[in-house]
Design a protein around this nucleic acid. Structure first.
Length: 482
RNA sequence: CGCGGGUUAGAGGAACGGUACCUCAUCAGGCUCAUAACCUGGGGAACCCGGUUCGACUCCGGGACCCGCAACCA
């Protein structure tokens, strides 16, 4: 299938300006499933995540809290890092911070390469400045009249500023050709069409630096003390600096150049990942990413999660009330793979009770209870996952939800099998038949347990241990919540 | 005419040019191994108007409504 057995996968790096979001939890859990699955196929896997820590917002927040910026970053980065074990993310994940010394060196190296190849230049342009807020505004922060929504009626001033720009406009044709040559580059196809039409409409060069006097907390621009990097060359470079590029070449060669590379991100990152970053790589002659997977957003009660509405769901809270695997289950199966999903605690409870407590948990209890009581032998169990080509296909397309649908189909089928063969009855009339049926049912349960390993690792382990010990769970796997 | 997505039982989601599927809820029956769980069966649905077609929820055109994006929102 693949010439190499090296597989690289990364999430985007969340900006540590706010608390860890359940949307990021979804992104990293889904990437984790892919990483774990690829490992079971025998791939050497490099899994990356981390935190994006530069920029004016961080600097301002640190000042407001009366902290040294670096201390502020250390604290907040740690909050994101703390999420990883809580979500049971595979422990050999690499965690990069954009304030790491090696990363800063890498960002500057990438900048220099683009510069040497003639894709960086300096120009004066006009920024929009609201006198009322005493802040620069982006286009999207202004209302339909081009005015600041907080200070309507006040004119927006245009201020000249000289910054460095990246010649994005030089890459339109190259990107379009790349998209044509790689028809599965962006998943899902709807997002791929979106980015194609964006590039077709024509690209504008984007600014990649800021005056240091206005934004001090950033990576210094090489050979120019008056400027620091704006987000792009800083944050996006992490995808290769995490491989010790350019300091050491071995990991980079194995995984980025000769391996298969996948970047997971939310739909807000479509342009950055699939166009801007790809153009930057092209500008340096570095191979492009193999595939970009775009997740939808998680709304709550039909609205975007926001502090002002008060519908924000914290991944830490959900796990505290339920469990890691309960949250993983919901993010993987109940959230649409590529479209926006909706999450409320009511929906969560409903899905939990129906599929984890009643479905998987109850099946495990009823079957192992009989098995333990009647003393069924388990020598025939080899602990293999379900043999189903559909599962493989779904994984290849990053459709974790479909994988789970297939597994849950098997759970239903097994409940039905028990109902129809009634071993709890035949044990009295035809014990051999009952035992044979139970042996078969246990084998099927073991397939379910093994297939769950990349998705719900803890549950999978528990189930396997229980089957091996031929023991009923003392505490239900997923206690029903009222 | 900036770009894109959506509208399917009470709720949330699928699929498909030919009997519309699943989950939750609901009603009836069964079972008693299991966490009041599990199994069987029932009722209940395509935003509107045109077109193509033997046949349209599906394809095409128009309209209505909702939702994103518009260059660091996760």
């Amino acid at each position: 299938m693949n010439q190499t057995n090296h597989f690289y996968i990364t999430t985007t790096l969340p900006y540590i300006n706010s608390e860890p979001h359940v949307g990021f939890a979804m992104e990293i859990v889904r990437a984790d499933v892919v990483a774990r699955y690829k490992k079971t196929l025998g791939y050497e896997v490099f899994f990356n995540t981390g935190t994006d820590e530069h920029g004016q917002k961080i600097f301002d927040r640190a000042q407001a809290e009366g902290k040294e910026v670096q201390d502020f970053c250390d604290e907040n980065s740690a909050k994101f890092r703390a999420l990883l074990p809580v979500l049971n993310i595979t422990s050999d994940i690499h965690f990069i911070r954009t304030t790491d010394e090696d990363h800063i060196v890498a960002a500057q190296a990438l900048w220099n390469m683009c510069d040497e190849n003639g894709y960086i230049y300096k120009k004066t342009y006009q920024t929009k400045y609201c006198v009322g807020c005493e802040l620069e505004k982006t286009e999207s922060e202004l209302d339909e009249n081009g005015e600041c929504p907080i200070h309507p009626g006040k004119k927006i001033e245009l201020i000249d500023e000289e910054n460095y720009f990246f010649k994005f406009s030089a890459f339109g044709e190259k990107l379009l050709k790349f998209y044509t040559d790689n028809p599965h580059f962006v998943q899902p196809v709807g997002r791929f069409n979106e980015i194609k039409s964006f590039v077709e409409r024509g690209l504008e060069d984007f600014s990649i630096s800021r005056l240091k006097e206005k934004m001090s907390w950033g990576v210094p621009v090489p050979k120019d003390d008056s400027q620091v990097m704006y987000v792009w060359f800083d944050a996006l470079t992490n995808y290769i600096s995490t491989l010790s590029w350019p300091k050491q070449q071995d990991l980079f060669e194995q995984f980025w150049v000769n391996g298969e590379t996948v970047q997971y991100c939310g739909k807000d990152n479509l342009r950055q990942q699939s166009a801007m970053w790809q153009a930057m790589l092209m500008a340096c002659g570095i191979p492009n990413t193999s595939q970009i997977v775009i997740n939808g957003f998680i709304n709550s009660g039909g609205q975007k999660m926001s502090k002002s509405i008060g519908n924000v769901i914290s991944p830490f809270d959900v796990i505290g009330e339920y469990s890691t695997d309960a949250l993983r289950y919901y993010l993987l199966r109940e959230m649409s793979t590529f479209e926006d999903g909706d999450m409320t605690m009511d929906k969560f409870k409903e899905a939990y009770n129906a599929n984890l407590a009643n479905g998987l948990g109850n099946l495990t209890s009823r079957l192992l209870n009989m098995s333990a009581t009647y003393g069924i032998e388990i020598d025939h169990i080899t602990f293999q996952p379900l043999q189903n080509g559909e599962i493989e296909k779904a994984y290849e397309q990053f459709e974790n939800g479909k994988v789970m649908d297939i597994i849950w189909g098997e759970i239903n089928a097994l409940d039905k099998f028990i109902q129809e063969t009634e071993p709890f009855k035949t044990i009295k009339t035809n014990p051999e038949k009952a035992k044979e049926d139970l042996r078969y049912a246990l084998l099927r349960l073991s397939h379910i347990a093994c297939s769950l390993a990349p998705l719900l690792p803890e549950t999978s382990e528990k189930m396997i241990a229980l089957i091996k010990a031929n023991q009923k769970p003392e505490i239900p796997l997923f206690l029903r919540k009222e």
